[in-house]
Amino acid sequence: MHSALVRLQNVFGFFTTVASCIAILIAFSSFTSPQTPSASLKLRNVQVVKGRPHYYSSKKEEYAHIKFDLDTDLSSLFNWNTKQVFLYIKATYPPTSPSEPRTEAILWDAILAGPIQPPHHNHWDPHASTKSRRSKSPPKSPSTKPPGIFKLANQRPKYQITDPSGRIAAQANATLELAWNVQPWVGALTWSRDADFGVWKKLKGGRTKAFTFPALKEKGEGLGTAKGGEGNRGKPA
């Protein structure tokens, strides 16, 4: 500590120690904040149509277009260390061979920003009206309602899903499930779970009854040529 340079190095060195200790404390403080998420997810309508992954593709695939109702209270996921929550709905159905896990496909997702996140066009504000969401105006300050409480009725999917085999019509025993990642400011990314973890309760509800994908719709009816989900990727819902 005899010269200024040595003191500067020492102070900075101890600062890094203190900063990492505080970061570890903040990361672990997330586990002390109770989570009691609940959701009600209902299937509205399923249609299966023929389409192709992109305009110039000669490959024809079957696309399922799933509309749903969602009523959630995920406000307890937002503690002081929550940066944002990536929320998604996946359709799962049995695999072709029984040794494999269930096939999953995401049909809708959204980024729910935490209360102190500065606005960003990737965030989805469930309380903004559809009109202002479509307009190109810069994002306004987040609404004052607690994040994570919202209701969607007859919501269109963001992605029309298909199977690697290209066939999804008449697939039986499918369900829709709500799932998420909690992205903290400091600490580990945590996923929704099927079991309680300490004071973190598992999601109550958030799963539809088993349903069967309908048969393929005839040409010239309904949706026309379906478009694969690639075009939607990264956009808010």
């Binding site: 203190v18 900063a19 200790c21 505080i22 404390l25 903040i26 403080s29 503690n79 002081w80 260390n81 102190i116 400011w185 400091v186």
Partner: peptide, 14 residues
């Protein structure tokens, strides 16, 4: 460090 953690926790803002 202690003040930073406590104040951030009380104001719920990292």
């Amino acid at each position: 460090g202690a003040i930073a953690f406590i104040y951030g926790y009380v104001t719920q803002n990292v």
